Computed example of a mutant assay.
Amino acid sequence: MPHQVKAVVARAPGAPATLETVTVPDPGPGEALVNIQACGVCHTDLHYLQGGIGTEFPFLLGHEAAGVVESVGPDVTDVAEGDFVILNWRAVCGSCRACRRGRPWYCFDSLGVTQPTTLDDGTPLVAALGIGAFAEKALVAAGQCTKVNAAAPAAAAGLLGCGVMAGFGAAVHTGGVSRGDTVAVIGCGGVGMAALAGAELAGATRVIAVDIDARKLDLARGFGATHTVDSTATDPVQAVRELTGGFGADVVVDAVGRPETYRQAFYARDLAGTVVLVGVPTADRTVQLPLLDVFGRGGALKSSWYGDCLPSRDFPQLIDLHLRGRFDLDRFVSETIDLTDVQGAFDRMSRGEVLRSVVRL
């Protein structure tokens, strides 16, 4: 029997998010119905709301979520009723060209549901990143559910579903940070803070946080930054070089995704160093670099998709590190709210007042 639940919907680009009653189907083959316990308010949801990701309105927002499986459809074996899970938007298909080559973190054909959640009038909703978890219940592909230790708090665990995993993975997986490296992270929102924490955990000896907000730079030290750079007061490229013996950092993570920050990342890295772009740019942004500099500086220019993560591998490991006190997920949670305050959370995020607001259900 379909379920009538409250959920947050984006009806038109630029319009405020609205709390509405939606209809969630029972799970079909390969699907799972999840009782959502917590869902983070991510910049990606704001991009959906503003019309920056697709035009298929209305959208069902929310994707950084954790909850408990209520029921599963036929042929589902990896998760079962009662499992505590983190939702992910890369449900590995196992058969695309990336998966066949042993690179499932690049899966090019991620699984999703076949049944849409709908508005009261029957209008189908497009779920943000194939999840749609600003809702009391969410229907997802079973492969989007990763079972983790139920001792983890849902408000913190759900953040691995996107922002924290993206930042951590940008440093550790895409950037390949290892012991003794120097690392700079440009942009200290939730993703950037996770990159700082990942770099520290990987053994980087010098971790430099760069931002325009003094409040975020103060917070960055709690996430592993050994040095901070206020780029409104000093040239960040020069500052990073001065802090690395004049050479530049081994790995520079751009967690902003603007042309100016990407150029800063490019020139703040050492010869043969690595630039990682994890901040999501808008479609109108372009960057120009002298091709001779691209050649002459060597190294690698990489983009990080979801932190190049493999949820089945990484989510349980990071939850275990959290429970052992080695990777503090609670620190990312600035506030907990209910579904009625999601639009307010978007506003606070836009003003830079929070790392993550988390909806508790």
Rank of each mutant, 00 (worst) to 15 (best):
G112P: 04
G54L: 13
T44S: 15
W105R: 11
G52R: 15
V140L: 02
P58I: 02
I86N: 13
G112W: 01
E81F: 09
Q50L: 14
Q144D: 00
V92R: 07
A135M: 06
V76Y: 07
A98T: 07
S110N: 15
H43K: 01
L160A: 09
W89V: 01
L60Q: 03
L139I: 05
F108V: 12
E81P: 14
A156N: 00
P124C: 04
V72W: 12
T117W: 00
R103I: 00
G62H: 05
C145Q: 06
N149P: 12
A152S: 08
T118F: 11
D75K: 09
A80G: 14
G94M: 11
E81M: 13
K137Y: 08
P116I: 00
T55N: 14
G122F: 06
V126A: 12
C96Y: 06
L119D: 06
C145W: 05
A152C: 08
K137W: 03
S95Y: 14
F59Q: 11
A133T: 04
A150H: 09
G102S: 03
T114Q: 12
A66Y: 08
P124M: 08
L87F: 04
R90P: 07
A138M: 02
G122S: 07
V68M: 12
V85I: 00
F108D: 15
K137C: 01
P153S: 08
H43N: 07
V148Y: 00
L87R: 08
V79F: 13
F108C: 10
Y48I: 05
S71K: 14
L46E: 13
Y106M: 07
P153D: 15
T55Y: 09
G94P: 10
D75F: 11
L60A: 02
L61I: 07
T118M: 09
E70C: 11
P153V: 05
T117E: 00
T117S: 01
V113D: 01
N149T: 09
A151L: 08
I131N: 00
F108L: 15
T118V: 12
V79N: 14
I86T: 10
Y48R: 05
V69C: 12
N149Q: 10
V113H: 03
T114M: 06
V76A: 09
A142H: 02
E56D: 15
A150I: 02
V113E: 04
H63Q: 02
E56P: 08
